[in-house]
């Protein structure tokens, strides 16, 4: 096996390699462009339409179908508010919730899982028992009570969702770590006296990144969907702010009578989820060090 220094050099070129391969993946590139567009739209939402996100248009129908003369490109919602602007404001909230919560779960989950899996034995046992205990605590109950107890707070949603999602992440990483740690190069690193932490961060984590990224691309949409589930239960974000979840759960009730209420936010949501998916796939394929 190569000495430690050589491994680092090789690691660098791996990432460059990965970037090159990622940009060769058409689906991933298209997804990145689409997702970027949605993000830009969301940021500049207020400047794109003459309508505000919280003001009813008393002169138009409640809800009204798309009308280009009035610049209601997506129509209006049940309160006569412009759906285009609201969909983009919803994008801000949904994306923020999805990404931040996933980031929280990633940070905790990967460190925790890799540590447990690598150290093994008693430590692993205790650490995973803690995860089991937390796992057995029904998460919806946890979130609902948190929402009730602290009132509606968007940051609370991040924390609550992130704090729950890391459990699965930790288990997956642990499982992978256990498989990996018995491989020769880890044993070799161990033999030459590299410290445990160094091995975890330099060798284990990069090598479990494939499944972690796959899981991450599942987590972002999952968090966005969980937020929408909370909205369905009426525990979502406070008016007049909105999220895709709120818009879709409202629209779903009127899918037949006022389809635009559902279609526009749902299309945005679906595109976003698809994009995360393809980007995740692209990253996975690009990062896989064995696939050459």
């Amino acid at each position: 096996m190569v000495p430690e220094d050589a491994q680092i050099i090789k690691g660098r070129s791996l990432w460059q390699d990965a970037r090159r391969r990622l940009f060769h993946n058409k689906a991933a590139v298209v997804s990145m462009i689409l997702l970027g567009t949605i993000v830009i739209l969301a940021i500049f939402a207020p400047y794109l339409s003459p309508w505000a996100y919280d003001d009813p248009d008393w002169g138009y129908d409640f809800p009204g179908p798309p009308n280009f003369e009035l610049h209601h490109w997506f129509g209006t919602d049940g309160n006569g508010r412009d759906l285009f602007v609201r969909t983009l404001f919803g994008a801000r909230v949904s994306l923020l919730v999805g990404i931040l919560a996933t980031f929280v779960s990633l940070l905790i989950g990967v460190t925790y899982g890799a540590t447990a899996g690598y150290l093994g034995g008693r430590t692993d046992n205790i650490m995973m028992r803690i995860v089991d205990v937390l796992y057995s605590l029904p998460f919806m109950f946890f979130v609902i009570l948190l929402m009730v107890f602290f009132g509606r707070n968007i940051f609370l949603i991040f924390i609550a969702l992130g704090a729950v999602q890391w459990l699965t992440m930790a288990r997956i990483v642990r499982g992978q770590t256990i498989s990996i740690k018995k491989k020769e190069f880890i044993e070799a690193a161990h033999a030459v006296g590299v410290s445990n932490w160094k091995i975890i961060f330099r060798h284990i984590i990069p090598n479990v990144l494939g499944p972690v990224i796959v899981y991450m691309t599942l987590t972002i949409p999952q968090v966005i969907l969980t937020e929408s589930f909370l909205s369905f239960l009426g525990l979502g974000i406070q008016e007049p702010l909105t999220s895709w979840g709120v818009l879709i759960s409202e629209g779903a009730k009127q899918m037949e009578s006022s389809p635009w209420l559902l279609i526009f936010p749902a299309v945005f949501l679906a595109i976003t989820l698809f994009c995360f998916n393809f980007i995740g796939d692209g990253l996975r394929d690009a990062l896989d060090p064995k696939d050459r």
């Binding site: 919280d54 003001d55 009813p56 049940g78 309160n79 009426g234 008016e239 007049p240 409202e250 009730k253």
Partner: peptide, 13 residues
């Protein structure tokens, strides 16, 4: 509730 929300939004405006 959907209706309470819609009325509150309208009244607030």
């Amino acid at each position: 509730s959907e209706n309470h929300k819609r009325i509150a939004v309208a009244v607030a405006s």
